[in-house]
Design a binder for these strands. Structure first.
Lengths: 365, 365
DNA sequence: CATTCGATCTATAACGTTGTAACAACGCTG
DNA sequence: CAGCGTTGTTACAACGTTATAGATCGAATG
């Protein structure tokens, strides 16, 4: 086991330590370490063994400083959004496969997008991937003038030079959700929307057009929501006070849907028995065994791959204009929060639909 | 608005561009940019204005390369743990206040701790803060031989040289939770434990000793759990099949508690009416309006501050041995999932305690 | 035998920054 | 007016790496 360090003076071993140890020149050692062609098999082996022995690790900062390319892509994400966690994981893989590294910079309650982006710039990232950025379009355009910027999930129009968009087809996703619910027999389908959040407008539009397509224009109903559990819970409480409750809810995202679910469960309204709930994102929240939320999958892996390949194309000159806006088709993931609407009487009163009845009777399992 | 770049050749402006523009030497420009004392007010102003004009940003990599100090602290966190999100946010603030920067490296299903740590080392972090590391103690010791390492939340004993621990007093936290429940009148208090997870053993011990202290040794009951919703849900299902259900549950963490809550709600067991639930961590999950989980607060902010100050002390030579293990006292946050146990009859059958009755009747709000 | 060649290797100069030491210019003191 | 500390500024060398061009050598060519 190597002690605090393998070179006498206690500092981290450097290329010249390595070269000295292997008995070769510094540049040769460098070539071996980065796998360049040139060195003979013999020297290669000698250097690699020496590296092993002294525990040499290349210094990425010096490496980046010297080579004009940094092969570093900055990623701005929000610590509070589970979907971003999925995206970050997928981005690590996608970037790695493309020969790039990722630098993370988090946004949180006490850390603004501005701060997040600035540290990424200071780190000499060659391109930026911003997950659901909220910054004004002008600011994004300004950034894109300095380096390639990919906005994920946030639609932008018109696209400033240097700016690309990778997003799911939100309208199509909402449409799929509505189709699924209608196929199950639902007609009173409410959409809890995301206000001004990235993607919200598209989901709203998709919902409306799908409802219209099924001849349910009269049943269109939007409830103001948002992207957190709190928003979902508030919207669900609004629905609870209604005289006629819907039989299905399409929430803006999984977070929001979970707030809805929880509020319904607390009010003893069984899901999906009495009401179906659909989320959006297929974040890991939705996949939890006890949630099993039917949701619209955003294909984090695909979005990540496309975002990276878009950034790389810009950097390596292979960017074509027909891909300025990449739209990935989402797909519905059917789990356990959707079911055909209940049509039986409740057995506790004279009403025939459970929705109209005030009482709930249930047996412990 | 600056165009793609303010220097002719299209590259990012450098210190010498800045110096040229301001009509001073490179070192002087450098001194102004890093706020060193020396430059006159006049030159300072001239340089700053020039920086503004050409949009100069210091290159942190070159800066770090030159100065032996990198002022960079590496943070390894798990994308899936909400408590880590809180910690990361607090760490940004704590490190910033201490004059250090943070480099994030995420652990996820497809990214191991090993990978995460290696990128941090390559980035020349001067110290590592590992959130609930699972790596074998030997590996941590090996790391600590290279640079200061702080393990947060994971207890280690004996402490290898260079390794420090910052953690909450998990036993004390569990004790507070039990005290609270006992004060409310609970006696049948179950602990769903965290198996081999960092901190689990302490929480178990705190639970047991508190129960004993209240003369409830006979009521001690451990149910195997874990740190995810799934684990909590599974444990809750175990409890549901019991003939005599407990009146209160202390879960290993918030994630786990939410699985418990959800399972109970699905089974129409109102919380806290029939059963009280306490979590651990006070992550943002617990604070959600519709969850309002009573939980043990780990004081992310304090933990972060102590972890950073410990790392900084090591780096700057102010480390004393009496702080090798910093233990922060947690405190109970009482929200809405705990209440005195129900003692009234249920009104639907002859049994006197709701716990013994199979039926539930409730009115819609 | 002189030349050319490919295969290896090495010397040197960068990359953008900062620390150190040296240097000018200034007003003081003696 | 020489000597001296202060203040502001600059020249130079480093940090650890890589790109470029050149050196060395035996083998193959003319």
């Amino acid at each position: 086991m190597p002690s605090r360090s393998a070179v006498p003076d206690g500092k981290r071993p450097t290329l010249s330590d390595l070269a000295a140890r292997a008995g070769v020149s510094v540049p040769l050692a460098s070539m071996v370490m980065r796998g360049a062609k040139g060195p003979s098999a013999a020297s290669r082996e000698r250097v690699l063994r020496a590296a092993q022995e002294i525990g040499y690790r290349p210094d990425s900062r010096a490496r980046l400083l010297r080579s004009s390319r940094s092969h570093l892509v900055g990623v701005q994400f929000d610590l509070r959004q589970p979907f971003h966690a999925d995206m970050v994981e997928a981005l690590y893989a996608a970037a790695g496969a493309a020969g790039y590294q990722i630098a993370l910079s988090a946004v949180a309650a006490s850390r603004s997008e501005q701060e997040a982006v600035e540290t990424l710039l200071d780190d000499r990232c060659e391109a930026l991937i911003l997950l659901s950025p909220h910054a004004p379009a002008a600011r994004l355009a300004e950034l894109a003038a300095q380096l390639p910027v990919v906005s994920v999930a946030r639609r932008l129009r018109p696209l400033a030079e240097g700016l690309d968009v990778v997003r799911a087809a939100d309208d199509e996703g909402a449409r799929q959700a509505v189709d699924h619910l209608v196929a199950l027999g639902h007609r009173d389908i409410v959409h809890i929307d995301g206000g001004r959040a990235p993607g919200a407008a598209d989901r709203r539009r998709g919902y409306k057009s799908a409802m219209k397509h099924h001849g349910l224009t009269d049943h269109v109903r939007l409830v103001p929501g948002g992207l957190t559990e709190d928003h979902g819970a508030a919207a669900a409480r609004t629905l609870l006070t209604d005289s006629s409750r819907p039989t299905a809810v399409l929430a803006f995202n999984d977070h929001c849907a979970i707030g809805v679910l929880d509020t319904f469960l607390r009010a003893r309204i069984p899901v999906p028995d009495e009401i179906s709930v659909v989320g959006f994102d297929d974040s890991h929240l939705a996949r939890l065994a006890h949630v099993q939320l039917t949701t619209v999958g955003q294909e984090a892996r695909q979005l990540a791959r496309r975002a990276v390949s878009r950034a790389v194309a810009r950097l390596e000159g292979g960017a074509t204009d027909d891909e300025r806006e990449v739209v990935v088709t989402p797909h519905l993931v059917i789990r356990s929060t959707t079911r055909a609407p209940a049509t039986l009487g409740c057995g506790l009163c004279e009403k025939t639909a459970p929705n109209g009845c005030d009482w709930r009777l249930s047996r412990q399992s």
